[in-house]
Design a binder for these strands. Structure first.
Lengths: 227, 227
DNA sequence: AGAGGGATTTGATACTGATCAATCAATCAC
DNA sequence: GTGATTGATTGATCAGTATCAAATCCCTCT
């Protein structure tokens, strides 16, 4: 793990557009950014572990981070996959001080680390920062509630279709998207075993979805919406 | 629906202990409470509907409120069941202004209603209120993430066991609890059809769980923890 | 206390997705 | 390039739950 205070331009752009920081005024921004640290992590590196003291939260600048919990027998269940711009563990600020799940990079990643206590202090002083926190946490909550509804309401092919649609240009007609990560990660996000994702893709062939590697071609976006 | 500004003593006690308001100083408390309205609703009454403009959030004072989403075919999926002390839709304050799910009383209920705009203004002025909001929303997020992990990691009998354990006095030995609501509501909370809940209970008989009406008797709490 | 009606349980069946194993494809190291 | 490693697909089977229908239980109301 390589830690530094320096930010690449690309990473800086992601950070500034992250829901947590977007919309902050200059002084709040400077205060937050001067206390964060940047680290570059290899793939499969643990960022935090369930049960550890929660003394920092993170914002993903590059790569993907998988949040998951383990069963007693060692089975893993993904709770959320964080993309560039997402923060995680930020909701422990005014709550518990113990991480409730594990976080692992799904590929080489760059993260901004924020010290809990420092941000807690800032949030108490600066209402703008408090508001940014509320927005970030609220956003997570919306996503998490959507996830429950998806799991409970839809079958595997439907969830896959929903995911594809969420990344398609809205219009009808045909479209082509590229998965930004491995299929096994997508499977986890959707609460599926990799085999089930594979079968879901192949069952979507009859509605005009073609998959080759990470490229997904959709013949008729509208048709996909009808299941 | 009967609206008023008056609070029974019992409802007031619940409100003051609600995570959202507990820990607030007197002036913040007064300001929030002077702008809320109380309503008493019959069972099965809709409090909000998916897609409506989100102009208020609520705190449950008495009874239970079910948050759920509908599929195109009309199937319902519960996202959360709110007990006395819980707030809901409060995470839309600094986000979307559209309700993302339906809310329906599961039985006659009393709710405190908070106008979004008014609380938004208060939160901007008063860091203490902002902090209370962060705590309330964070709490929800923790619960919702737990829910996903539970759904994905455990089978029906295990989820039922977890629920029972969560309401048992911690010690080992035997225990007896009373469900505070109908079994069909519990089924929804756990993402199960009522029939599946029933079968889960009966499968727990072999580890010493007896159910009669709303009373659940646990022979050996420790044994229940091992599955 | 008894009747009525909704809630729950039970049974039978179908479906969805997990799991295990084997094959195939793609990527990497050398 | 070639073998080795990792990721993805496919097939066969199984476990867990939904669904539908019928029987029974429990609660409330009178």
């Amino acid at each position: 793990m390589n830690s530094s205070l320096k930010l690449s331009n690309r990473d800086r752009a992601v950070l500034m557009k992250a829901p947590f920081l977007a919309g902050l005024g200059n002084s709040a921004l400077v205060r937050l950014m001067s206390m964060m640290t940047i680290s570059t992590l290899p793939a499969r590196k643990f960022v935090m572990r369930e049960g550890e003291t929660a003394d920092a939260f993170y914002c993903v600048l590059n790569g993907y981070v998988r949040l998951f919990r383990l069963s007693r027998e060692g089975r893993e269940a993904d709770i959320m996959v964080c993309a560039p711009g997402d923060t995680f563990a930020e909701h422990l600020l005014f709550n518990d001080n113990v991480y409730r799940c594990n976080a692992q990079t799904a590929e080489p990643a760059t993260l901004a680390r924020f010290d809990m206590q420092a941000v807690r202090d800032l949030a108490q002083q600066d209402p703008e920062i408090a508001k940014a926190l509320i927005a970030a946490i609220s956003r997570h909550l919306v996503g998490t509630m959507d996830c429950i509804a998806n799991d409970r309401l839809f079958t595997a092919p439907q969830r896959v279709a929903n995911y594809i649609l969420s990344r398609c240009p809205v219009e009808g007609g045909s479209a082509s998207i590229r998965l930004p990560f491995q299929k096994s990660l997508l499977a986890g996000m959707l609460g599926l075993a990799p085999e089930a994702l594979s079968r879901a893709f192949s069952s979507l062939r009859r509605v005009g979805v073609t998959v080759r590697g990470r490229i997904i071609q959709v013949g008729d976006v509208q048709a996909l919406k009808n299941i």
